[in-house]
Design a protein around this nucleic acid. Sequence first.
DNA 1: CTGACAATAGAACGATCGTTCGAAAAATCA
DNA 2: TGATTTTTCGAACGATCGTTCTATTGTCAG
Lengths: 211, 211
Amino acid sequence: MSKGEDSRKEIVASALAMASEVGLEGVTIGALAERTGRSKSGLFAHFGSKEELQIAILDEAVDRFVSLVVSPALKEKRGLPRVRALFERWLAWARADFMPGGCIFMAATVELDDRPGPTRDRLVSSEKDWLGVLSGAAKIAVDEGHFRPDLDCDQFAFELYAIAHGYHTLARLFRDRASEKRARAAFDRLLRDATISTETRPSARPSAKHH
Amino acid sequence: MSKGEDSRKEIVASALAMASEVGLEGVTIGALAERTGRSKSGLFAHFGSKEELQIAILDEAVDRFVSLVVSPALKEKRGLPRVRALFERWLAWARADFMPGGCIFMAATVELDDRPGPTRDRLVSSEKDWLGVLSGAAKIAVDEGHFRPDLDCDQFAFELYAIAHGYHTLARLFRDRASEKRARAAFDRLLRDATISTETRPSARPSAKHH
DNA sequence: CTGACAATAGAACGATCGTTCGAAAAATCA
DNA sequence: TGATTTTTCGAACGATCGTTCTATTGTCAG
């Protein structure tokens, strides 16, 4: 690896940590330069614009997310074990030490939801992918017979997403461990509901088809 | 009302709208002055510091939240109707036209969770209050016999909180109406679980309760 | 109408923002 | 090694940041 790639990697890693604390916009060229012991212009030359730096941060985060959350979970057995792994690793991701300010995606979502542009586009597509992974994992669990056949997998993904966001928000705001227990309890309830077949519920009839 | 109070109100209202789009830190004195047709220093004099302006924004948001969400819901019948009203009004709040950038509390939470100070303290206490209202409403529903007696009301509040945050996040990120349906479905599932007593869950049994 | 006081404006402050440019230093290749 | 390219730096740019002054305007009671 060339020298340039090396220092770019190092800069982006530092920028990722910084962005998790102060947001993508809060990662200032000057502050990042000082943090990494470089000159403003020397650092700036690696990216060409602040927007490119922000995209580099998001790309780095996606890479790490895939290698720390998605890939390991895909090595778990298909179905319920994989769904569990995705959830557990997601929780762990949100407290990763290289993001001392919390999940960068959740921070970026709030920051970018009103600012059209390539940075936002990158975030939207990666979040869409992630929801697809969650929904797909649920679908596999259905196929494996772990979940009920009429489960709405997109709905399952939404609720999983909501639980993780609720956990993250409250854990960071109140600085306690309680919300982790709450999140796990909510996840258990979600699993219970996905597992139990519909005919055991009052108003449901044994359905053959889903979708 | 004096002239000063009048313009302060007007400034804060404009600042609230702006903060929902660009965050509390993004509300710059200069931009806000131009937006409200005033001089920087004239506007600044109303607050004395940017931090005070941010607190004023949060206070204004709390006032509106109470009068648009909490108070009306408290006029609903105790128990389930009130819980429903809190949820529905919360969803509506998140799309209020005076916050074109979405819920200010959710934006502020991400922005302030790493920045200790009076602004963060204000936010934390108001979020704690809100979770207390939700939990309390669930408790009343238990007392009224609408929810099962062994319901964990704090857990209920957490899950309601998570659903609303998931809705808000995805609605703003993907700019579609789908997440509203998802949120309502998740809420229904939450209610179903809070309603059915625990002993009916493992095995199927036609319950008497429905809404 | 006048005097007191509140509200707003204008100009300027040092600091920092993202960005540009040309030169020095370091790394790479012949 | 010498030549060349890549990487880094220092200085400066105009713009904007929050904030502080002083001066001017507007409001309102006596």
